[in-house]
Design a protein around this nucleic acid. Structure first.
Lengths: 373, 373
DNA sequence: TTGTAGGCGTTATCAT
DNA sequence: ATGATAACGCCTACAA
């Protein structure tokens, strides 16, 4: 039962003109007689009329709307992505329509369907993996699509992001260069980016004939999970001398566990986070983390879309970004410098064949169901 | 320039039927001949057809869509609200359309306009303050509206939330009962709920003739801001023996500052957070916080909307919730018990006339612009 | 300055 | 089992 919404015609009748006049007033008040305009305004204010954009969408016109499917609202990194995209979109008179996918391709497919059914002019995706149907729908629709965050192998259209595998490879190489030999990968719920990082981690270790130690959980990442997993790791793998974390949440959990157990960071164990969120600045010592330019990515995505929409050009844009280091004290000075150096030359970095098979070393999963509601 | 989207007619022509037959197949495959259905399915799959919901919206029908205007994506509390609402909505075949307001009534007005222009069947609001136009539009539209989080004075329609003023009053009273005399309010960017809490805080102090000490910042709250502000407070107001925080982010910042300065929590200073987010469980000691039932609120909001939509009843539903205590160790045992007791009898609680004027004690604002982009 | 006609893509309704 | 027609509310294009 939906309320009887007010239409242009209702306003028109109140004023004693046709809806066309009211429509004109709405797009440009100067196009109607001043006296008429005043009456129309009064009528609109009186009833709280909200223009219905649906018919406009129907008339093949642009909807001035960009759809954005983000992986999660509980990971702060996506909040920055949205802010960047919205700020740029608004400046151009566009709106962003947001949906979230919970990192699941099928959910992305659902939400994409929903957004496309609103006739969005373009789509921004933040998951790197899609269902075949998602890909087909986007390609057939011909609307501009930007995949954000990860550099992907077969972009649907445009792509801005990081090669997380390469970044992780470079990070682990740096730690090895600086003498770490028992490097652990601390992870949480497996999504595609988590896997990319793992591949980079495994590849670097393999190259140096070092064993892999992967500790993770099935639950979505948070501080508690990170701490629990790290406690377990310290028991089972006490030689650990470096922890590469899939994100800052679990990294902070790891720091908490280290403090509890009297482990010195970074002397005994160095800890490296991923994303460079604000929270890492508040710990003591501050977390060293791989910082991704989230706000700028959101902004750039909209910029690429606007260019395409305006010029109709079909430049294939695939931008590989290189991360900065969010400086803290959870790596040694030497390690920090090695990482910065290696990130600077990331484009030139050659990797050996990627490893995606199971690691040779121990692999430990804490069984733990997501929290009850 | 929008892609030439595929329509029902395109599919129909491919198959050699009219679009009506294809439409029937989509709503109920059994309504067309089996052979026809097979051909239609093939055609749809081949071109990646996405049904266009816009015409459906136009034909006065329900859009099966609920609009939700959340204050922020960078505050985790709203993520739970969204999850609760989405879970319930999906079960009923509804979609949630999300927009964010950055706590600003004018932005809420903009986003409301956007959502209503998509003909949503109902609206969920999470800000407690609205522009007059927002209120008028919602009331005139007659669609079900739920205001979440805060119990408000003049609800637009339905309302589920907390009386944050009363909750804060009860919390401060409890601290006073237990002997605290130098209670500080630690806040951040001022939104309406922050103000409600301040009023409760001031009222309780006034009743006991204690001076108020309010420390805050203009920037959006985060851990860094909380820590900075608390450091300043410790310098200027060293007698402080309790810190009432507007949210868990600044509370954790306060804990960090206390640890740095060698202040014992809760012996020297007790710290109380607000919202009971997961992050409070990871600190040492765990943060004691006032927990709000966010997921359930989101769920209940949709439930009320569905009832209204289905039955057309116009029960005025105004639910006042009472918070639980998220148990930690940043209050003394005695204080924790006092708070729990007082929350249990919150409904019966009588407050003196509210104070909303400026506090009598010192008030200190750290000037700090939001972080550069 | 204002009005009229037609069309956007789907579904309800009424034929065939 | 399938087709034809009308309607939803706005805007573009043309007319007065």
């Amino acid at each position: 039962m939906k309320g009887n919404r007010i239409t242009l015609d209702d306003i028109a009748k109140k004023v004693g003109v046709t809806k066309m006049t009211v429509s004109r007033y709405l797009t440009n008040p100067d196009k109607v007689a001043k006296a008429t305009g005043v009456k129309i305004k009064a009528a609109i204010d009186e009833v709280g009329y909200v223009p219905n954009r649906v018919p406009v969408m129907l008339s093949q016109a642009s909807t001035k709307t960009i759809g954005m499917a983000v992986s999660s609202f509980s990971n702060l990194l996506f909040s920055d992505l949205i802010d960047g995209a919205e700020a740029r979109a608004r400046k151009a008179g566009y709106e962003i329509l947001i949906a979230h996918t919970s990192y699941r391709p099928e959910e992305e497919e659902r939400k994409l369907n929903q957004l496309m059914s609103y006739q969005v002019d373009a789509m921004i995706l933040t998951d790197p993996v899609h269902t075949p149907l998602t890909i087909k729908r986007l390609k057939m629709s011909k609307i501009p699509v930007v995949e954000l965050m990860s550099l992907v192998d077969n972009p649907i259209d445009m792509n801005i992001g990081y090669n997380h595998t390469k970044v992780s490879y470079a990070a682990i190489k740096s730690l090895i260069e600086c003498g770490r030999r028992h490097i652990m990968y601390l992870t949480a719920r497996m999504d595609a980016r988590t896997m990319n990082r793992q591949t980079g981690y495994l590849t670097a270790l393999k190259e140096h004939n070092l064993p892999a130690h992967i500790y993770g959980s099935e639950a979505p990442s948070n501080f508690t999970i990170g701490a629990e997993t790290m406690r377990q790791a310290l028991l089972e793998f006490p030689e650990v001398d470096a922890v590469f974390c899939t994100n800052d949440d679990v990294a902070i959990g790891a720091m908490i566990a280290c403090v509890e157990q009297g482990v010195k960071v970074p002397d005994d164990i160095s800890i490296l986070g991923y994303n460079g969120l604000d929270i890492g600045n508040t710990t003591v010592p501050k977390l060293t983390s791989i910082r991704t330019a989230r706000y700028d990515m959101g902004k750039s995505a909209v910029e690429l879309i606007l260019m395409r929409l305006r010029n109709g050009d079909h430049l294939e844009t695939h931008m590989e970004l290189t991360p900065m280091l969010s400086l803290g004290q959870t790596l040694t000075t030497e390690e920090t410098q090695a990482l910065s150096r290696n990130f600077d030359t990331l484009y030139a970095l050659k990797m050996p064949p990627l490893l995606s098979e199971e690691p040779s070393g121990p692999r430990r999963w804490l069984k733990r169901t997501p929290k009850e509601r």
